Computed example of a mutant assay.
Amino acid sequence: MASKQMVHMNQGQGETSYARNSGIQNALQNRLKPLIEAATVELCSSTNTSFPEKMLIADLGCSSGPNALALVSIAVEAIHSHCLQLQQPPPEVCVLLNDLPDNDFNTVVKSLVMLHQSNKPAVVTVGITPGSFYERLFTSGSMHLFCLSNSLNWLSKVPEDLTRNRIPAYDVDEHARSERLPMVFEAYAQQFRKYFTLFLELRAKELVPRGWMVVSLTGRRSDDCASKFSHVWEIFAQILSVMASESRSRAMIDRA
């Protein structure tokens, strides 16, 4: 799909880069720490299966910057702590980082040295797996733990009902937007249900028996399209729509 080749966070380490503007995402990742620790303890526990000699862990939608290693670092540290407590030799750990091909993997690779330096007691290898997590990424029955933080809200394409009828996800005209809002919400809800089901089916094939997946994504409790939560994003959408319109206008002037 074309979206795989062009959708990515701002690259590099500059002022407007994702690496320097992802504090909110980092805070959400930190909330997953106790869940990831519990999952890794369960995976390492002798009451679950025989103590594993090797473990494969993946962050799906890792992006770039310091957040790219946050979730897998929690898992690796939890494995080491549990093995130390049980006086067991730690397993060999393979960490796999996934995102779309145009993700800033160059920056990610440069930060991998920190992961190796902070986990000397065990063998930790790291791999990059570019691609959409709405497709198969790993071999069957190979993965022990998947981690995802606020990446499943990204769909691979606009719902076909909207593109077929040429309905934008956000219309600057307030009257048109109000009329179309329920239709847009339902179209994206159906698209999410379809892709989330596909995602679960794919990961189920890739997980080892009794493997784990720790997932977080932002949602809202209210079914009201005009909830306060939606209103906040409506302001952002209006700003982005105007910026996109101005960009198209400049492009037309340049071509002229």
Rank of each mutant, 00 (worst) to 15 (best):
R31S: 14
R164E: 14
A187Q: 13
L35H: 15
I57E: 08
N48F: 02
H82F: 13
R177A: 07
G61N: 09
E186P: 00
E246V: 08
S249E: 12
V232H: 10
P52V: 05
T129P: 00
I253S: 11
L181P: 00
N150P: 02
N103R: 11
V93M: 12
E246Y: 04
Q117D: 14
K157H: 15
R210D: 12
R20S: 12
G211M: 10
E174P: 02
T49E: 10
L86C: 08
T197R: 12
S216I: 01
H231E: 13
I24W: 04
Q191A: 15
L207H: 04
F138Y: 13
T16I: 05
I167G: 04
L97R: 07
F133N: 05
D171W: 01
P130S: 11
P168I: 06
E186N: 07
K205E: 15
Q238V: 01
L84R: 12
I239R: 13
L112Q: 00
G14Y: 01
N119F: 12
S46N: 09
N67D: 04
I239M: 04
N10R: 13
Y188S: 01
A70F: 13
L60M: 11
V113E: 10
F236Q: 10
L152E: 02
M55G: 03
K54P: 00
P209M: 06
V72E: 03
A187C: 12
D173P: 08
V214T: 07
T125W: 02
Q190C: 08
S118F: 01
C83V: 04
P168Y: 09
S3M: 10
V123E: 12
N153R: 10
R255V: 14
F105C: 04
R221W: 02
D173Q: 07
S178M: 07
S156M: 09
G12Q: 08
S3D: 11
R180L: 14
V184C: 05
S245E: 14
L240G: 03
V72W: 06
C147H: 06
T125D: 06
D223G: 03
F51D: 00
L198K: 15
A78R: 05
A2K: 10
A189F: 13
R164T: 15
M6Q: 10
F229V: 09
S247N: 05
K228M: 08
S151N: 06
W233R: 01
L96R: 02
N103K: 07
F192E: 05
R164I: 04
A244G: 02
L217Q: 03
E77N: 12
Q88G: 00
H80C: 03
N67V: 08
E201Y: 05
K4C: 04
G14W: 01
S81V: 13
D161P: 06
V215F: 11
A27Y: 11
A39R: 03
V214D: 05
G12N: 05
W212D: 09
L35M: 11
S247T: 14
L35E: 09
L69P: 01
Q25T: 00
H80E: 10
N98W: 08
A251R: 14
L84Q: 13
K228S: 14
K54V: 03
P89K: 15
F105N: 01
K120L: 07
S46G: 09
R166P: 00
L69D: 05
Q87V: 00
